[in-house]
Write a protein that binds this DNA or RNA. Structure first.
Lengths: 341, 341
DNA sequence: CTGCTTGATTAGAGCGCTCTAATCTTGTAA
DNA sequence: TTACAAGATTAGAGCGCTCTAATCAAGCAG
């Protein structure tokens, strides 16, 4: 059972433990013969260094702690993929746990990660109080994804939700739409920025922003559209909708269709997140895409910069979203073009 | 920067390091006064034990290695959630990496996990050769999820794909369908079992199984239906479809609708996996659900049983799927009830 | 042949913890 | 008072590695 240790390899190769250590770390100051001999011995015994012992002795960790609140959320899964890819490339390993968006649980998760004395920690959309984050940042570099922070020792990686909404609004205006409504995401992560971006983009074009309170689910999207339909005279209805996310958009489309309104002929709909849902040929949803994997990569890079001591000032990454135009948006019918104003 | 160590706490509390160690591990053989004093000192210094040092000294690991080939796949994300929940409850931590379903990368990932000398390893649908798995199993307990194995030292947790297909077939037959086609998943993980289950269930009822080669994507589902439509006379068409997974089902539904066939009035469709997709009110897909989180929980439990030495014979969990009936399946119209035979 | 430089190798301490065995306290029975 | 068991505490070795400083070997100028 017991794996071979460095001493075993040293004995087998007829050298000292220190030499084995040097070879395992690819030190240049080892003669080719010795190197080969040690390599051979290691291979024969199936030896590989004990990462934890190494971390302890070298006082440097190759472990990065990652706390995610929900892996089922495709957004986080993608970010973790990006983190993992970058970590593997840099020779780091991820230790991962979930906080479920519950402050107490997240606190435990964070403490658990810290007890590994990791090289750094990445927190995905955490809800723990800033004080706890600050405390963690005193122990190791901390990077926040999808959460802003003013803390000096903490880097952040966010998608530019405002810009994403603006992108969608510009697209719709470009198609001739003027009455555009946003079904917002309430208190969900990132919803505030999307809402803000929508309002600003509309006002910047001299249009009145219509915001309907909703949530990031399909049923909420349906309900929001029902409200919209009952609250407006048919002629004054928005001709385009910017949903809070893709699920919400799907719900909205359902409700529109059930009420005899065709998408995109009668109403254009834009989603947000570009989930696997959106690309289904069944839906072909126009939506806003965030570079999620890239966010993970950048987060790990920011961490490594601090680990290597290359930087001490905080960095604030704000990633540009892009619009993926599919089949749920179309040019506004000209008939009542100016009637609504 | 440097976190306090056990010696710091000992000095601060005026006791020995060993006593601190006992308190941190909740040993009963410590007097209440000392315990309180140590606890207080630890709190004041913000001390928490170094997991890696502990693992090294105690020769027992509280780390479980998890290799997943793709987190974007909701199936694996759910299993990892289950693993994490069970691990947290048992005081274990997950170290996670991805293999991308590429044997060489998976090999690296596996080696990387082993170098932590983990308590055990969970492999989610790995493609590495059995020999590598066997080698890993000699070093620590290994549990395979979504992959069968005959290895004696390896536990497995699988969903019963055959049973799932049978469930769907029985449901459809109960609705009066007799001409039922399966759009299979080709070489995808689990596809073979689903296909087999379909064939057996059909034959057991004296019906001829129709299998159309497809894949686990929506576009493949569309194509499969197109083939089906062009290959059969309208009257001889299957009246029900069992798709390889939910994505495939969505594609199939799109193609059916485009060809003027209504779901479920003209053709019933059953998906597989019960992804978030299926529950969308827009689709309301009847589908087969696997207890994914439960699979993760069971996998970790199996691991812990071995860690605790409670069991040495391998265990083979085969979880029962269940059918989630929604709106894409309906009673077969009676008109040509017996005509097809 | 000596002294010195350079490069290769090794001894040994130490990372922060656990664990065994020894030591120190008490309380209590003789 | 002594003896001893039982409980509480601690000294010290060791987990598998790294790292510093010391040692060793070889080459070469003087």
């Amino acid at each position: 059972m017991g794996k071979p240790t460095m001493a075993d390899v040293a004995a087998h190769a007829g050298v000292s433990r220190a030499l084995v250590s040097l070879v395992m770390r690819d030190s240049p100051k080892v003669s080719p013969q010795r190197r080969a001999a040690v390599r051979k011995a290691a291979a024969e015994l199936g030896y590989s260094p004990h990462v934890m012992a190494r971390a302890l002795a070298s006082r440097t960790s190759t472990v990065v702690g990652v706390m995610v609140n929900d892996l089922r959320n495709a957004f986080f899964a993608d970010v973790v993929e990006g983190l993992d890819a970058a970590a593997q490339a840099a020779g780091f390993d991820l230790i991962l746990n979930t906080g479920g968006r519950v402050p107490a649980r997240e606190g435990n998760a964070l403490r658990s990660l810290l007890s590994f004395r990791p090289a750094g920690i990445v927190l995905l959309s955490p809800v723990v109080p800033a004080a706890e984050i600050e405390a963690a940042a005193r122990q190791c570099p901390v990077v926040l994804v999808s959460r802003t922070s003013r803390l000096g020792g903490v880097d952040t990686v966010n998608d530019d939700g405002e810009a994403g909404s603006a992108l969608a609004v510009e697209h719709l205006i470009g198609l001739g739409h003027r009455r555009i409504a946003h079904l917002d995401g309430g208190g969900a992560a990132g919803a505030a920025a999307r809402r803000r971006g929508f309002r600003r983009a509309m006002r910047a074009r001299g249009l009145e922003p219509i915001v309907v309170r909703s949530e990031h689910t399909d049923t909420a999207g349906e309900k929001a559209v029902q409200e919209l339909l009952s609250g407006y005279h048919r002629t004054g209805l928005p001709t385009a909708l910017l949903a809070g996310n893709d699920f919400n958009a799907v719900g909205a489309i359902s409700a529109l269709t059930e009420n005899g309104l065709r998408v995109p002929e009668d109403v254009s709909v834009v989603g947000y997140d570009n989930t696997s849902l959106a690309s289904l040929r069944h839906l072909c949803l126009t939506t806003v895409d965030q570079p999620r994997t890239e966010m993970g990569r950048l987060a790990l890079e920011a961490l490594l910069e601090r680990v290597r001591g290359e930087r001490t000032e905080p960095v604030r990454h704000l990633l540009h979203p892009s619009l993926v135009v599919r089949n749920t948006t179309a040019r506004h019918r000209d008939e009542d073009q100016e009637a609504g104003r």
